[in-house]
Amino acid sequence: MRWPHAAAPFATPPPARPLTDPQSIKGFLDPEEGTALARYAVATAHLGPFLEIGGYCGKSALYLGTAAKEAGTRLFSIDHHRGSEEHQKGEEYFDPDLYDEVACAVDTLPSFRRNVLAAGLEPWVIAMVGGSADIARYWSTPLGFVFIDGGHSMPAAQADYDGWAMKIAPGGILAIHDVFPNPEDGGRPPYEMWKQAVASDAFEPVERIRTLEVLRRL
């Protein structure tokens, strides 16, 4: 079932383009989705800083970090940087360039830091290395914008939603990536999180951009 979408708000000019082309960075975010993230983030900066779950190599951080720079706020990027389930050895999206032979584990943090540095965004992008749920437990600052793009298993997606959705200030934005209403197109957990958000009466759907669902906190 598809929920109706409200008219898109925030008729603000698009934020500045990142100095580094985000499409040159490893990741899975479409340019149209990245531009939408930045547009919505800039419009909510007066409510609080930005936060993303799932920094990977920094593609989304370039869009949101540029928005944070323009708006005079900060992007907090949460990731354990050991890769999601699908990034591990033997899985579909395993990348040997991101594998640390010494640690015997995926490590995306060096790539993330290099890309943020190259884009000139270090002052505006704060990397938080750890589990989303662990950090959420100690977080108290209201947020203007939250982007969930972490692990796509049901426990991981549920923990991200439970930990962060209600930390968004009223009027702020929750953006969820990889939402596939048709199960033949992709995994279900992000879609289930979107359905939970709408059914909670705490959020209203605003816009869908490819696989990105945007909701406003009521």
Rank of each mutant, 00 (worst) to 15 (best):
D100V: 05
E70I: 03
T66M: 07
K195V: 14
D100E: 09
P142Q: 12
Y191G: 05
P205Y: 10
I53C: 11
S77K: 00
D178Y: 13
A38R: 01
P9F: 12
T35K: 13
A7Y: 09
G83S: 11
G65H: 00
L218M: 10
I126H: 03
Y161Q: 07
T108W: 10
D100M: 06
V102D: 13
Y161L: 15
T141S: 06
M1G: 15
Q158S: 13
R188T: 10
D178W: 09
V42N: 04
R82S: 10
R208S: 14
E122C: 05
T211E: 04
F203C: 01
G90P: 08
A169L: 10
D107T: 04
H87M: 13
Y63V: 04
E52I: 00
L75H: 01
S140M: 06
D107A: 05
T12C: 10
R82W: 12
L75W: 01
H81M: 03
F10T: 07
A105G: 05
V198P: 05
G120V: 04
C104F: 02
A197R: 13
P142F: 08
P110Y: 04
H87E: 06
N182D: 15
R82D: 11
R208V: 13
L143D: 02
Q23F: 02
K167E: 03
S200I: 02
T73A: 11
C104N: 14
